[in-house]
């Protein structure tokens, strides 16, 4: 008995010794993570305080949940929550579909240099600043000089549209802009997964007489599954956040579009531009991250249940 224990301890020691180099390697990263990501987390108490800098954060008055009420009290609460969730849902679904399709198509191209050209072109929008994007969109949609009003609608003999005052077009515009800007990046990740799938599967399949389509369904897609789950779970964690640049800059802060473009982030920004209340702003941030956290846990659980521990944890 004691012998067994001794060998266990010895094994443990040996293991510890063997891994010590790795633990040491982790140290700088962990330190960074702790200092940069964990220590600032204590700042969440600001969300429950009426901040007064003259006495400091800790001594400021504790106000409980008062800072949160403005998020739910308003008639807009429903609207901004709906907008945020629906847009993000659309972005996740369409973005993933788009990225996977293009990644598969990329994979089918056999001429190397053409493949490289496509890859770069697809990634390019992801590198453009959102402010520049907003002006690209404006060049298309401007009432006076816009390409769509002046050239396309004109040629079709249709009446010009006042794009920046008509909210009904904006869900489509925003989704298109987001896809155009974002899918290139995801596409590269899926493409990287694709080329790591073992070629011999495909060879075996073609020997067995499987068509291209059958190969796609039975080899490519299952090979991508793990990456899709991971990427989707990561996006679900951010489903309560919205890309501020996309919803504020791209519609050029046009008030008339608010029903279609106001999300939690832009709502908080507009509200705080008058009040500059840090407590209320951090309350919004805390609320968003809490909901995101819960959603990630739930989504991960669902994935694990239905596809057998393919979730990320």
């Amino acid at each position: 008995m004691s012998n067994l224990q001794q060998t266990k301890v010895k094994k443990k020691n040996k293991k510890r010794k063997r891994d010590s180099a790795f633990f040491l390697m982790m140290l700088p990263g962990l330190t960074y993570l702790f200092v940069n990501n964990y220590i600032p987390m204590t700042g969440v108490i600001i969300a429950f305080k009426e901040l007064d800098f003259s006495v400091g954060i800790l001594k400021s008055k504790f106000v409980g949940l008062k800072n949160f009420t403005y998020l739910f009290q308003t008639q807009d609460a429903w609207l901004i929550t709906r907008n945020t969730l629906l847009y993000n849902f659309a972005f996740i679904v369409l973005g993933t579909l788009c990225a996977i399709t293009v990644a598969i198509l990329l994979n089918e191209i056999t001429v190397k240099w053409i493949q490289k050209v496509y890859q770069t072109t697809i990634l390019l929008p992801a590198l453009i600043s959102i402010v520049v994007v907003s002006y690209l969109v404006f060049a298309l949609l401007s009432a006076d000089n816009g390409f769509i009003n002046n050239t396309i609608l004109n040629a079709l003999g249709k009446e010009a549209v006042s794009w920046y005052t008509e909210p009904r077009y904006w869900p489509i515009i925003l989704i298109v802009v987001n896809l155009w800007k974002g899918f290139g990046f995801n596409c590269i990740i899926y493409y990287a997964t694709l080329i790591s799938i073992d070629r011999s599967y495909y060879e075996a399949a073609s020997v067995d007489g499987a068509s291209r389509w059958q190969q796609l369904i039975n080899i490519t897609l299952p090979g991508l599954k793990q990456t899709v789950f991971t990427m989707t779970l990561l996006s679900i964690g951010k489903i309560f956040y919205s890309d501020f640049g996309l919803f504020y800059q791209v519609p050029m802060n046009s008030g008339m579009l608010q029903n279609a473009t106001n999300t939690i982030d832009t709502y908080v920004y507009r509200a705080m531009s008058q009040l500059n209340d840090m407590g209320m702003a951090s309350a919004a941030g805390l609320y968003q991250s809490l909901v995101g956290f819960v959603l990630v846990l739930a989504a991960n659980k669902i994935v694990n249940r239905y596809s057998g521990s393919e979730g990320i944890f």
Binding site: T69, S162, T165, N262, A271, M272, Q274, M280
Partner: peptide
């Protein structure tokens, strides 16, 4: 503004929506 913060946050969002367009004559 300390007693009416929540009201101001909502009202600011509403005036943001209309005032510029109204005063510019667009609507």
């Amino acid at each position: 503004s300390s007693n009416v913060k929540a009201e101001i946050t909502t009202c600011t969002n509403i005036t943001d929506k209309y005032v510029r367009a109204l005063q510019a004559g667009v609507v």
